[in-house]
């Protein structure tokens, strides 16, 4: 499903990712573990088409997305990827319902029933008209999870999904992600610095100073 071959990434003269190569199978749940500044988020961004590598290949479904134009990468993100961020990255001035609808609107496949179902699925009934600032951190992350899944992407990328939450809420969120993953059969890559979160995954890889240690 996802294959990285000799990927290198620099920020100026700083070599963030060094000759990264690994594969992720379809439906697999992978955790990437590493300290702050180890390059794990950059790696996730490259897989998600939010950033580009200086060299190497990122092959998704037999296509090298590192050669994609900006427009093609946008389409890739829109259709194939669902993101879950540490700081939720919800649009602040629109409601829960509208935030979750956003991928459907962008893909021109708006389906109100589907949105309602997902709201139910993540346990946010009654909060449809709330704005993000009216929700707790856990609730905001639930919105982000629903938004990441609503357009049925093949890949879910989660960058420190529990990083802004207390451990209890974090555990609840991880249970939710795992439960949904089991039901929907998606490929998931989670980036985290917390080992107990990484344990939810079927496979763990460690990254340190831009190098992968499997």
């Amino acid at each position: 499903m996802i294959k990285l071959e000799h990927v290198d990434k620099y920020y100026g003269s700083f070599h963030v990712l060094k000759d990264i190569s690994f594969e992720v199978g379809k439906g697999e749940f992978l955790s990437i573990v590493g300290r702050s500044g180890s390059g794990k988020s950059t790696l996730l961004n490259i897989i998600g088409g939010m950033d580009k590598a200086e060299s190497g290949k990122v092959i998704v479904d037999n296509e090298d997305i590192s050669s994609y134009s900006d427009d093609k990468l946008t389409l890739y993100r829109r259709r194939k990827v669902g993101f879950i961020f540490q700081f939720f990255n919800l649009l602040p001035n629109i409601t829960v319902f509208e935030n979750i609808s956003m991928p459907l609107i962008l893909n021109n496949i708006m389906d109100e029933e589907k949105v309602k179902n997902f709201i139910k699925l993540v346990g946010l009934e009654g909060k449809e008209k709330s704005f993000p600032f009216q929700l707790s951190g856990g609730e905001q992350q639930r919105v982000a999870i629903a938004r990441a899944l609503i357009h049925s992407p093949e890949i879910i990328l989660a960058d420190e999904p529990t990083g802004s939450l207390d451990s209890e809420t974090g555990a609840m969120i991880m249970e939710l992600i795992c439960g949904l993953m089991r039901n929907l059969g998606k490929t998931i890559i989670i980036v985290t610095h917390e080992s107990y979160i990484a344990q939810y995954a079927g496979r763990i890889i460690t990254i340190k100073d831009g190098i992968i240690y499997k």
Partner: peptide
């Protein structure tokens, strides 16, 4: 930030 989020969700230029 919102524009960045939209772009990450697949909103094109």
């Amino acid at each position: 930030t919102e524009i960045g989020i939209l772009r990450s969700l697949g909103a094109d230029k």
